[in-house]
Design a protein around this nucleic acid. Structure first.
Lengths: 337, 337
DNA sequence: TTGAAAGCGTTACCAA
DNA sequence: TTGGTAACGCTTTCAA
């Protein structure tokens, strides 16, 4: 178990072979006889031999390490993605180096720099909210360095992406509210710099139009994700002469915050107003009434992003591709389900 | 930004110095003149030069990488710890390689093997529930390889540890229940192979004794953390002729599961039975009644474990030490607070 | 089918 | 205070 002390040379000596032969045998080179391979492998197994990755990397200019950058590790959404990434990349012989950007553009840049300096073979990232400056990512890509984005992507960077069809997801959520009888729907939306927030709004508008309902402008609350402001947003909404009868929230945290505010105000959910969130987090089934939500296949997305990375490693010069994941509506009590 | 192409040799050539001098200058060796250092550093900065970690590692037998093994990445508790670890270790020039054991002893062994093969300079781990076999960790330690455990530790492994005083925590929880009027207290305990589970039980016993209350043996449910069994445990408990009037749970997940079961059965909390959990997770303030809990300083523990690792790297041959963190009781509605 | 040897980018020993 | 050089463990070209 101890940090490998044996080298290829030890194997060679023991078997009366040369380093080169042993190296080739370990890599199952076609130029090596079956019996030789056998011998090498069996001794290697017996010794628990593993190649020194640093020597290997030094020679091959690869590290067999993948960098992953997320806004925040300690968030279920992203740690699940990381878990998905690991499930695919470890069996392929890669390790994962993790960086967190803490929702800051500068930190994101620093973290990427650091990972690149550590010689990761590629990068899978989900962008941080306020990030505008992405030229350095473009530069990396131009040098043939694989960068794959998932979930929070930027239109300005031309790389492979794994995303959710947020427009369709929002459409689904709003249509569900409408089918449940809502006619005056409010929205606590996210940071407008994120394309996902904009796409959600597109979906909202499309759903309303499809059902001949108006978009009530003052019910569309932008940047409504700050947990400290949610209660006042809700209070304001419900104090209107014609308050909303349905509220869609940017994520479950916001939705739960909203729900708690409504309960405190004695406004019955779903009877008087219906609520739906996004992400389908654990808390949805903890709160009462249980929260309806839109489920994102985040583990699957992590896996898919990793497959793109591996494919790219296999043969570079691939055209960037975008893989779109669908979401599913989870109906619970908060929308009368 | 691109993966460094320049080498020490390029710097040397450009400055009319030798590789050795440049290397020493970069490491601020005392043998190098101030002016030379200046020149080297300024060119290195200008070029954005960074040493090749693989070549460095090959030569020095270090990787400047720390391995972290947790039962599950996608769990707030552990991802917070990882975050804490990163906050301390990144500024020290180390990267973090993460492995998850999925609560399985075999996986844990494999993951450690893999990380060691990847030449991590040390390991910070939180053990998985069912783990018995720890000889390999002992072996590593004997070879001078740093292993630090946090939270879920094993008494059988003689290494530095960062733990919570679980006995005191459990004492606090039980004493609180008693002060709130509970006289027949039940416990959904954790895997008995974990020392934390045993220490909790010690605390429970001590608290009961201190208040002259008996420990009701059939109310002490071992290995009670399986979410599928929690409802039947709760049902069984409450169907007893003399059911418990207080339940302490191994963690918040179990407590919430228990609470939901009680609500479904129409048993009022906290009036008929009081509940307390451990970890103080987000869901505590989502469920109703809000869940009382014991808060663990998990980010701080991750940081402290990392400091121990760095100290050990600085000078090996340290005696193992154990750092104990205290917890705080968070009183909410589920215990009538 | 196998072996010898060069070289990846550092560090560290020995000289100067 | 600085330089030359071997060595870390592996891959790979060239030769046999």
């Amino acid at each position: 178990m101890l940090p490998q002390k044996k080298t290829i040379e030890d194997l060679a000596r023991e078997l009366n072979l040369s380093k080169s032969t042993v190296s080739r045998a370990l890599h199952d080179s076609y130029q090596i006889g079956e019996d030789t391979k056998q011998k090498v492998h069996s001794l290697a197994d017996k010794w628990g031999f593993q190649l020194n990755p640093q020597a290997r990397g030094l020679k091959t200019h690869r590290s067999f390490t993948l960098g992953v950058v997320v806004p925040e590790i300690a968030h279920k959404y992203f740690s699940s993605a990381i878990s998905g990434i690991q499930q695919v990349v470890l069996p392929a012989g890669y390790n994962v180096l993790i960086g967190q950007a803490n929702e800051s553009a500068e930190q994101e840049y620093k973290v990427v720099r650091q990972l690149v300096a550590s010689r990761v073979d590629g990068l899978i990232m989900s962008l941080s909210g306020q990030t505008y400056y992405h030229e350095y990512l473009q530069a990396l890509l131009k040098d043939g360095f694989p960068v794959i984005m998932f979930d929070r992507v930027s239109d300005e960077v031309d790389c492979s992406k794994v995303i959710i069809d947020h427009e369709a997801a929002a459409f689904k959520a709003i249509e569900h509210l409408i089918e449940q009888g809502c006619r005056r729907i409010a929205h606590l939306s996210g940071p407008q710099v994120l394309s996902i927030a904009q796409n959600r709004i597109k979906g909202i508008k499309r759903a309303l139009k499809a059902h001949d309902l108006p978009l009530i402008p003052e019910f569309l609350i932008e940047n409504g994700t700050n947990p400290e402001h949610t209660p006042s947003h809700i209070e304001w909404l419900m104090q209107q002469p014609n308050p909303p009868d349905g509220i869609s929230c940017f994520n479950d945290d916001v939705a739960i915050n909203a729900l708690l505010t409504l309960k405190k105000a004695g406004i019955p959910v779903p009877d008087k107003v219906k609520i739906i969130g996004f992400n389908n987090e654990k808390e949805c089934v903890v709160i009462e009434p249980n929260l309806s939500s839109i489920e994102h296949p985040v583990v699957e997305m992590g896996k898919e992003a990793t497959r793109l990375f591996l494919k790219y490693i296999e043969k570079p010069n691939q055209k960037p591709q975008t893989i779109v994941f669908d979401t599913s509506l989870i109906v619970r009590q908060s929308t009368g389900g």
